[in-house]
Design a protein around this nucleic acid. Sequence first.
DNA 1: CTCGTTGTATACCGGTAGGTACAATTTAAG
DNA 2: CTTAAATTGTACCTACCGGTATACAACGAG
Lengths: 202, 202
Amino acid sequence: MASGRKKAFDENTALNAAMDVFWQKGYVGASLTDLTQRMGINKPSMYSSFGNKEALFVKATQCYLDTKMKPHLDLLFAEGVGLKQRLKNHMMSVVSMQCSDDGAKGCYLVLCQSELESGEIPAEAETLLKQADAIPKQIFTELFKTDPESIELGLNTKAAENALCLYTTLKGTAAMARSGVDKAQLEYSVDAVLAGISTQLH
Amino acid sequence: MASGRKKAFDENTALNAAMDVFWQKGYVGASLTDLTQRMGINKPSMYSSFGNKEALFVKATQCYLDTKMKPHLDLLFAEGVGLKQRLKNHMMSVVSMQCSDDGAKGCYLVLCQSELESGEIPAEAETLLKQADAIPKQIFTELFKTDPESIELGLNTKAAENALCLYTTLKGTAAMARSGVDKAQLEYSVDAVLAGISTQLH
DNA sequence: CTCGTTGTATACCGGTAGGTACAATTTAAG
DNA sequence: CTTAAATTGTACCTACCGGTATACAACGAG
């Protein structure tokens, strides 16, 4: 009996705002004052809705993976597009987001990496970040191994190797974007890497 | 008259220790407790010798540029070595350092980049970091423009463009190394980029 | 030795971090 | 309207941040 006062804010909207703050400042750099202000709520509301800063970070990270990272990965599996073009589309999509003016910049995962290494991020969030970090690697490798076009081109033997090369290059673009490198330069880099791989395999 | 007590520590050793801490944790992440503990001194000694945290950071960053960054750049100007080989030596040297077990990892400049963007680094240090960030770019461009072999290969017209590509790729390797990518993979990436550039120019 | 100078050690300053106790307020069931 | 459950805002907790006042220890000149 009795079901209490209604929430005066939307949890999902608030979570998106928190994601942006973490994305801009990292886990340690984002203070509760920063977070709650941008979320439009006060601290007790945050604690009752999300648990604590760590739990909020975990949920915000999951939100990033679902809404920001997945669209890029989907381009790798677009139907009716050749392997090479899909790879390019995928990488250019990442470059494009990194260089856009709206929203936060830089790779969420790369941004948190230094905090991971110095042990400033709690255990549960650390596990999630490491799992998320492994996703593109797995997908790239899997794609190279199972894609018909890849096998036809004789790429299967060097699949893992090439997947790793693309994956590392892709991760690099995030750091470059955050260093103020512009879009054209990044696209040129992506082209160069793709050309390099083609050369080595033909 | 009277010349006071002698210092019980070596300033240069202490500065190197401070550099390592900043390198691992960034400017904001490195607390005075972290710093002074690793430097083997207490806070008043640090303040009397270096001024404050900001001044210490500026000196530590200068130390990084002189002792860590310069050796890599020197490889670009080695005598009796071809341009392509010098570029490769230079990039592999960076990869090698990033993947070594001793000392801190990652690019000092990339590490501090997020703090730069969120305005957490004081003005003087910010200027120094931005200048340092521009050095490799300038050197790469200059090298492409003035190197006889480069001109002979007809690279001069696309010099700046290629320099930027190499520069961005190089910066990317630092982020990759910090993400746990191993040495062989990074070397493979460097090879791919160099191959890609050769393809585009011949 | 005395004395001024310099470095070291401890304890402390105001400010802010993450987190919480508590009272006031809103809601719906009875 | 009463009442119990849930959310809200304010004020506060301890811990640590960068920075410093102060007392003490080590030195060299005279």
